[in-house]
Design a protein around this nucleic acid. Structure first.
Lengths: 133, 133
DNA sequence: ATTTGTGCAAATCGTTTGCATCTGA
DNA sequence: TCAGATGCAAACGATTTGCACAAAT
């Protein structure tokens, strides 16, 4: 159905490339990807989009709440197709992300944010490395 | 005293610029800063270092455990002069970091990391924004 | 028809590197 | 002396932008 409608709802015109990218994103198991990767995938599926458009689209989707941007690695952005609140492992050896299984992490006692501020999101990143025997 | 000695202990030659930067870092209240900022501060104090050297030095200090690198903002690295484990508020409006007061956050039930991996660090970032009344 | 999106290439930004020169031990 | 540091400018990789063209309403 609905890719078309979801875009509309988000106030985004359902253009050919936005639809194609949206479908790619939804149909993919691998949920954490970089612009570069999505661009590659698109090409592999015969969808012709420029890298610039991929970037624009990813940000538009993020603004529209269809994606979540993860800042994990200096100088590289990851986008998560799972927008519900959850946290991540970052495997340093492979520069790869993995979801932390649901409610395995609980943050107790949220400290009050500074004066006049509200929490907008909480990101927990558990960096893991090869175990050394 | 000891800036000189701390560098030696870290296996870093106490050169003019490393000493100067180390002293700047220690003597500053503001503990979260970018390479750009440190470079600016150095210049302001009449210390002549190139930006490249500031970058190198920050990374050497990080490797030596004198600083901690924070990944918070896509495409910009922050360095924290406080290396003891603690977490951060990130004030989105000003791109500014602030420490979360000691043990206000506790993570319960650490999920097991993926097969053959060990946790190398846990970063918690609480993003805050201007409260809208 | 008008507005909005797209592609491309060039521009930008933070960061890194190569190399000739200098400096601390 | 001489390994290790530094400065500079050029190289870099990720991301962004400007503008002419194309597509959606």
């Amino acid at each position: 159905m609905e890719a078309r409608q979801r875009l509309r709802d988000a106030g985004l015109r359902p253009t050919r490339q936005r639809l194609a990218l949206a479908e790619l994103l939804c149909s993919m198991g691998g949920r954490h990807l970089t612009a570069e990767q999505l661009h590659g995938d698109a090409q592999a599926h015969g969808i012709s989009v420029s890298l610039a458009t991929v970037y624009n689209t990813l940000h538009q989707f993020t603004r529209a709440g269809l994606l979540r941007e993860l800042v994990v690695d200096a100088g590289r952005s990851y986008f998560d197709t799972n927008t519900s609140p959850h946290h991540h492992f970052f495997i340093e050896a492979t520069n790869t992300l993995q979801d932390v299984p649901e409610d395995c992490v609980t943050v107790s006692t949220l400290p009050p944010p500074p004066e006049g501020m509200t929490v907008s999101s909480i990101d927990i990143i558990i960096r893991v490395k090869e175990k050394v025997e």
